[in-house]
């Protein structure tokens, strides 16, 4: 393979997959965060059916393969009249899956706050809403940040599964090029791009932790 062809055809073609990979990651992470927060709230605050539904949801999505979930959304839902394009189906499936993990992260963060904080807020006459807004959320988000950043980094890699239903993201584009050129070292190049995205993102956790650290809180969170 001539170097020119590699530099000016193959690389640009694969790099076009980066925005798609990032969009898949960001959309599914956001969906997972919103849904995960609701699921966590249902588990922490609600009793009875809501709490049970949340638990079942979390167990189901953590206990079955993400690939199966993607297939189910893309190939299964059309059977009941819901037809989605591959990108949307991937965002939904990865987002639904991530919601289960993010719910557990948020729930653990809330459980990590000492009981006295809740009782103090109550004893000062706060409503449940005020307690969560002023006392619980600001502390929980700090506890959860490293794990949420971890989850984000995991999603960057999981989005490569969307290639299987034909989303033209980073890995799919690399696959095309390997098929064209029979040069499997292109996979190495794709892996390097994932690394280049994931390593700085992991560092983001440290930056966020330092920026929003509670003064006097010296114990490392990770």
């Amino acid at each position: 393979m001539e170097i020119e062809r590699f530099l000016f055809e193959i690389i640009p073609y694969i790099l076009e997959g980066i925005p798609v990979t990032l969009q898949l990651t960001i959309y599914s992470f956001a969906l997972g965060l919103i849904l995960g927060a609701l699921l966590a709230a249902a588990r922490v605050l609600a009793r009875g059916p809501l709490s049970v539904i949340s638990r079942v949801y979390i167990e189901f999505f953590r206990g079955t393969p993400l690939l199966v979930q993607i297939f189910f959304v893309y190939f299964g839902l059309p059977a009941i009249g819901i037809k989605l394009d591959a990108f949307t189906a991937s965002v939904l499936a990865i987002g639904f899956n991530s919601a289960a993990y993010q719910a557990e992260i948020i729930r653990a963060a809330i459980k990590g706050i000492p009981e006295e904080q809740f009782l103090s807020a109550e004893s000062l006459g706060m409503t449940t809403g005020q307690m969560y807004r002023f006392i619980v959320f600001p502390q929980a988000i700090r506890i959860a940040t490293p794990a949420l950043v971890n989850e984000f980094v995991a999603l960057v890699k999981y989005t490569s599964l969307a290639s299987i239903i034909g989303v033209a993201e980073l890995f799919r584009k690399a696959e095309y090029m390997v098929a064209f050129t029979f040069r499997p070292e292109i996979y190495l190049f794709a892996a390097a791009i994932y690394l280049a995205i994931c390593i700085p993102t992991s560092q983001l956790s440290k930056i966020l932790e330092a920026k929003y650290a509670i003064p006097g809180y010296r114990r490392a969170l990770v």
């Binding site: 006295e116 103090s120 109550e122 004893s123 000062l124 006459g125 002023f134 502390q139 006097g216």
Partner: peptide, 30 residues
Amino acid sequence: RSKIGFVFQQYTLFPHMTLLRNVALPLEIS
């Protein structure tokens, strides 16, 4: 509840706000 003051053994103050905010916030809310 806002007529009763309560102090626990520990973890009573909210760690993410200054001492001043800790004391002022309940006045604003309750």
